[in-house]
Design a protein around this nucleic acid. Structure first.
Ligand code: SF4
Ligand code: SF4
Lengths: 132, 132
DNA sequence: CCATTACAGACTTTATGAGTCCATAATAAC
DNA sequence: GTTATTATGGACTCATAAAGTCTGTAATGG
């Protein structure tokens, strides 16, 4: 039970975009170098973030990525869902059609966590990457 | 990001033990049949539960498993930890020795979830398996 | 002694994450 | 228009862990 490394990269990339100048798009080349990961691999995650509507992409010279929404409107949960998908942590193997109480407990627990992550906006950590 | 199927089996097995008569141990053979999984595989999870101190095992004729603690002292988190281990969901790939704020956010979120699971005792679901 | 049960380790199979490679498309600069 | 620069897409390989099997050993009650 672990978040994929892709999520790690995506979170860091997003925080880097927050710290970057809002008008100048930043390309995957620079990001990959900062995070220590290959361009082509990171590119896949960036594309997922684009499809999730969190960032905006522009091809061509001086292209790259920039935030689409305001910092305070992007939560950790948004990013995690964009990469990991929105499937739940648990599904009963033997599906009795009754109310699955075990599943319900785990899902409620998950909801606790997601609520926390949804309230945590990346704007709170805007300063983090300023010096790195 | 999903709990392993082993956790699913363990949770169901524990709930079955709660519903069973407290004096008669129940063997892995019966449990495996109820859950629709092979005996040898389920056996591994049961052993983990024993090592975690949640249940007690007895070999030989009329042997099997029974709860070690009281129902209200066994939480969902106990069972999950016994199977999945206690490692956290997230670890930063680039380990700056500073305070890892990203990691801190995810870990705090995880703590929200674990708190919920710790307060959820299996005694609350004691009736669930009575008729199955 | 014997049947019955749990325990342990080696092993195979399967699924998924992690990562590479290369071809294509779109855009800006010249 | 041509070219350099960027993102996007799919097919592919590789590594790792989950899922499950097989077989043997140990302990206990009858
Ligand atoms: S949670 Fe209960 S109802 Fe759902 S599959 Fe498990 S035993 Fe059946
Ligand atoms: S969370 Fe911050 S300090 Fe920790 S590894 Fe990521 S960038 Fe570095």
């Amino acid at each position: 039970m672990k978040y994929s490394q892709a999520t790690d990269y995506a979170l860091h990339a997003m925080l880097y975009l927050v710290a970057a100048a809002p008008d100048k798009p930043v390309g995957v080349q620079l990001l990959a170098e900062k995070l220590g990961v290959s361009q082509t691999y990171l590119s896949k995650m960036m594309t997922k973030l684009v499809k999730a509507g969190l960032i905006q992409s522009a091809p061509g010279a001086n292209g790259g990525y920039r935030l689409r929404r305001k910092q305070e409107d992007i939560s950790f949960l948004d990013i995690i869902h964009a990469i990991e998908g929105t499937a739940s942590f648990f599904e009963c193997s033997l599906n009795h059609d009754n109310e699955c109480v075990i599943q319900k407990v785990v899902l409620d627990a998950e909801r606790q966590m997601e609520q926390y992550l949804q309230n945590k906006k990346i704007s709170e950590l805007a300063e983090h990457f300023k010096g790195r």
